[in-house]
Design a protein around this nucleic acid. Structure first.
Length: 946
DNA sequence: AACTTCACG
DNA sequence: GACGTACGTGAAGTTC
């Protein structure tokens, strides 16, 4: 039926329905997999009720549900702060948005949206068209922004209050008729949508003014006549802002729609289609109601395996894929070679609200990597690869290799990808997203929002297995991906990805995106079941952009300083080698523990045993140190050991630091860019690689000088802030040690205070030796103390060490309870937890033999080390906002320390802001019973800042 | 690739 | 009664 006179169009504001449903209902989840489903449930119930209610005498002939699409509209182009203070869409809600589209279609109601326009604009346009065609319109919404449309056959209906909104109701709200609503809104502004309006003028005053002058333009033209000086001044000065506001609140009645009113003709739901959807969502009640209504049998209820309340994770292979899995088919993957095809895929991503993304590049180093291709996946089995930088031939000094035909232009592809990658209504899913984030960031694209399957795995399964894609695919999808080696080879003959044939690359790269999407679909609901959603969302995921920015910033390193040190070290080493050769009676490779062992123990007759599976002599520093004490029995060996120790120290500094660091200086930036592995340590700590900047020497005077090469740029300073004794403070809190808590509150030297408590020595009579022993015990406790270990560390008899430990437990009874409770918890659950909910799995806790001992100590240590890691992660996530506007950059993290580069004049401000953020970062999640204290230092170099 | 050693918190 | 033991990392060099 063509739309015309006598027709009645119902327009449902879909977004309003969704939000109302979301906020009205408790957070329901789908039973079979834990998918959040509350908003969809509410949405369906509202639609059903609407259909039932709409059947009276005034029934609609045409109807549509209108949705917003994306968040960027033409209004953002007019005013970049439009809706800028909108809160992020709740995490639980995001995956439900596409489902509400599906629900609408299942109800057989037209479902419309339009990129670049708000739902309100589509509603305005349809209302105008219907009005002009002589029909009537009812807008199902109570949104005040739609009230400008009321009149001339258009009215609104508030479904919650069950009342119509006509011209009288609009006038009651705005003080003017519908035709002047936008004038009032332009003046009054709107804090929700961040429309500025005229400062100091609200709806009441606006209506007064409009009623007096007739309309907005007249008012602005005659603003000079206004008596109140403040009001007059505002209207004159802010006229532009008010006109802009009017533009923003005015709905676009000329939205270019791709459908007509006739397409919206109301249809009865198809019972089967509808029930299949409802059943899939596992809405039992509604499914039954619908079945009754249509007089058909409800479909069989989906068998659900109730999710266990506690964690169900185990070290064994998961039998997860219960439902039929779409088979992997590399031949089905699409190779995207032109803009039309890419646009098609991106539209599907928009419709779904998510897309898995993976990049292929020429290097593992994100700071050097060039784009070779991008792969996308929208649903399991459906993936595509966009080749962008494949080359052939060798290339030479004068020209790059030849570009392979049939590839999109990189810039063109990126310009199409950018709006999707930055659209906050489209979730970008990746495996190790920090890598892809950095590649895109270097091309001016900030990917957001994101999900990362590697980090999901880390949050759920830390301690159980690795989180690389191959391992996850094998374990959870029972699928072995194409090994990268098959494409690029290995070792010396390895090639870069751009040299890979496009057809092969498509099969490999698209598969990665496919796997990532499948893993995500499996992991997302499981985060809830494992109760680590908050950990993932507050401690893992938000770290991705923060770390990416730190890594991209890099730290300035003076190669000249390092080079000078290298030369000095080389000289010293040669000298020592010479001496060592003379003592040994023959030259040998000092760097070879095997040769050294044979010379020391076989030729020079030092008493000492073999160890290790290989049967080689142990020649570690502790062994050699023992040998140096044999001046009386074997003076030659003692001397040799001492020289070797010196040589080893210098060799280490040279090869690992002064030499290697220089090779890591990026040619373009002149700085060193480390890479942090978020899932690197089981406890929640980060790991730093390529190069590792978390183990730059500091303990020895010689080594510490390497930090002099880590410098600030001109006019800048290096600032270092570190948590003081954070692990002991956490121990004092979690193990409930009142004496230690008090010591921290009083700001005492904690090791001295411990010594005083243990050995009954007053603080003023403390000796360095007693304090040293107490310090060793304090650390021992954190590591899961044993008499043997403490004895070795302090080089005292085992019985004496055990005596210390007994005494410690006696004085701090909370310690023993903490240890016992933690181990018992680990045995029961096979994991331990930090204060912030991070889980660290300890499957070996039940094994027999030495592994059990390791697992036990790891279980004792993990909640402490892990909580400290959580605390600094929280600080890092908050840091960008905390130091916003300051000329400062966060550069490095070293477990309990954050390092910044700051303009000299802002050093004090930076320290204040960063310290406050760090000291307060446990809150509000955890209120510690001990204060967190942060020490700060500054200087031209890292050495000076420490 | 495994092992040893040693740098850091 | 014996066995092995501090917790968490990454990199370089040697050996197999």
């Amino acid at each position: 039926m063509a739309f015309g006179k006598g027709c009645h169009l119902h327009l449902i504001d879909g977004s309003a329905f969704i939000f109302r449903a979301y906020h009205a209902l408790p957070p329901l989840t789908r039973k079979s997999d834990g998918l959040p489903i509350g908003a969809v449930s509410g949405f369906c119930n509202m639609l059903w009720k609407y259909i039932e209610d709409a059947k009276g005498s005034d029934a609609p002939t045409h109807a549509a549900v209108i949705f917003d699409k994306g968040s960027h509209t033409f209004r953002n182009d007019l005013y970049d702060l439009y809706k800028a203070n909108r809160e992020e869409m709740p995490e639980e809600l995001r995956p439900q948005i596409p489902l509400t589209r599906e629900a609408t279609k299942a109800f057989n109601i037209a479902c419309e949206e339009m990129a670049g326009y708000e739902a309100d604009d589509i509603i305005a346009t349809l209302a105008r068209q219907a009005r002009e065609a002589g029909g009537r319109v009812t807008i199902i919404s109570s949104d005040k922004d739609l009230m400008q449309l009321v009149g001339g056959g258009v009215e609104m209906f508030d479904a919650m209050k069950n009342r119509a909104i006509g011209p009288e109701e609009v006038e009651a709200k705005f003080g003017v008729g519908p035709e002047r609503v936008i004038d009032v809104q332009a003046l009054a502004g709107d804090s929700v949508d961040n429309i500025p309006g005229a400062p100091g003028i609200g709806v009441k005053t606006a209506a007064l003014l409009i009623n007096e002058y007739g309309d907005l333009e007249t008012l602005l033209a005659r603003a000079g006549e206004i008596k109140q000086p403040k009001r007059r001044q505002t209207l004159i000065e802010k006229a532009d802002q008010i006109r802009l506001s009017k533009q923003l609140v005015t709905l676009d009645e000329q939205t270019p729609l791709e459908f007509t009113l006739d397409d919206l003709e109301l249809r009865e739901p198809e019972p089967e289609q509808l029930m299949e959807f409802l059943n899939q969502m596992e809405f039992r009640t509604l499914t039954r109601r619908v079945a009754e209504k249509f007089g058909v049998e409800p479909p069989p209820v989906i068998e659900t395996v109730a999710a266990p309340a506690a964690s169900s994770s185990s070290a064994t292979k998961e039998p997860e894929p219960e439902t039929e899995q779409v088979p992997f088919d590399p031949d089905s993957y699409v190779c995207i070679r032109d803009a039309e095809e890419l646009a098609k895929w991106l539209d599907e991503a928009r419709a779904k609200g998510w897309v898995a993304v993976d990049t292929e590049t020429t290097s593992l180093d994100e700071m050097k990597a060039e784009f070779v291709g991008v792969s996308l996946s929208i649903e399991p089995g459906k993936a595509a690869y966009i080749p962008l930088g494949h080359t052939s031939g060798e290339g030479d000094l004068f020209g790059g290799a030849e570009r392979v035909e049939g590839q999109m232009d990189l810039e063109e592809a990126l310009s199409l990808l950018k709006p999707v990658l930055e659209d906050d209504a489209i979730l970008k899913i990746g495996q190790n997203m920090k890598y892809d984030f950095k590649i895109f960031a270097r091309h001016g694209i900030r990917v957001a929002p994101i999900d990362d399957t590697m980090l999901m795995s880390y949050a759920m399964f830390s301690g159980l297995h690795g989180h690389g894609m191959d391992a996850l695919s094998d374990r959870y999808l029972n699928h072995q991906p194409i090994p990268i080696k098959e494409l690029i080879g290995s070792g010396k003959s390895q090639i870069t990805f751009d040299k890979v044939d496009i057809a092969k690359a498509t099969r490999y790269a698209a598969e990665d995106a496919d796997i990532t999407l499948r893993l995500w679909q499996m992991f997302k609901p499981r985060l809830h079941r494992e109760q680590v959603t908050t950990v993932y969302e507050t401690l893992e995921r938000p770290l991705v952009p923060v770390l990416a920015d730190m890594e991209m910033a890099g730290v300035k390193v003076e190669t000249a300083v390092l080079s000078r040190m290298s030369n000095a070290f080389a000289q010293k080493m040669a000298q020592l080698e010479d001496e060592i050769g003379k003592i040994a009676g023959q030259p040998f490779n000092v760097g070879s523990p095997k040769q050294l062992g044979e010379i020391l123990f076989d030729q020079m007759g030092v008493e000492g045993g073999k160890k290790g599976k290989t049967g080689a002599y142990g020649t570690g520093a502790d062994v050699l140190e023992d040998v140096t004490t044999m001046e009386d029995t074997n003076p030659e060996a003692a001397k040799l050991a001492a020289r070797v120790l010196d040589w080893r120290q210098i060799s280490k500094l040279k090869s690992t630091y002064t030499d290697a660091l220089q090779t890591h200086v990026n040619a373009e930036t002149g700085r060193v860019h480390t890479s942090y592995v978020i899932s690197g340590a089981n406890t929640g700590r980060l790991a730093s690689t390529d190069p590792n900047l978390q183990n730059i020497p500091v303990r020895s005077e010689e080594g510490r000088r390497i930090r002099e090469a880590f410098v600030a740029g001109p006019g800048m300073k290096i600032v270092s802030l570190d948590y003081s004794q954070i692990e002991l403070r956490i121990l004092a809190h979690v193990a409930d040690l009142p004496e230690m808590r008090e010591a921290f509150k009083e700001g005492l030297d904690i090791h001295a205070a411990t010594a005083s408590e243990m050995f009954d020595v007053p603080l003023e009579k403390m000796t360095p030796e007693i304090r040293r022993q107490a310090k060793a015990i304090n650390f021992g406790v954190i590591y899961g103390i044993s008499g043997f270990g403490l004895a070795r560390n302090l080089r005292i008899p085992r019985a004496e060490a055990q005596g210390f430990i007994d005494r410690y437990f006696e004085r701090f009874p909370g310690i023993r309870k903490y240890m016992d409770d933690t181990v018992a918890f680990a045995k029961e659950h096979k994991f331990v937890q930090t204060l912030f909910g991070r889980k660290i799995h300890t499957p070996d806790i039940v094994s027999k033999g030495p592994a059990a001992g390791f697992a036990k100590r790891a279980a004792i240590n993990a909640p402490i080390q892990g909580a400290a890691a959580d605390i600094i992660r929280r600080a890092m996530v908050r840091m960008p906002a905390a130091i916003e506007g300051l000329p400062a950059t966060m550069l490095l993290q070293v477990h309990d320390e954050l390092i910044f580069e700051v303009e000299e004049k802002a050093v004090d401000k930076l320290i204040d802001a960063a310290r406050a953020t760090m000291e307060g970062s446990a809150e509000p999640s955890v209120k510690l019973s001990v204060p967190l204290v942060v020490d700060a230092g500054q200087g031209a170099s890292w050495a000076a800042a420490h």
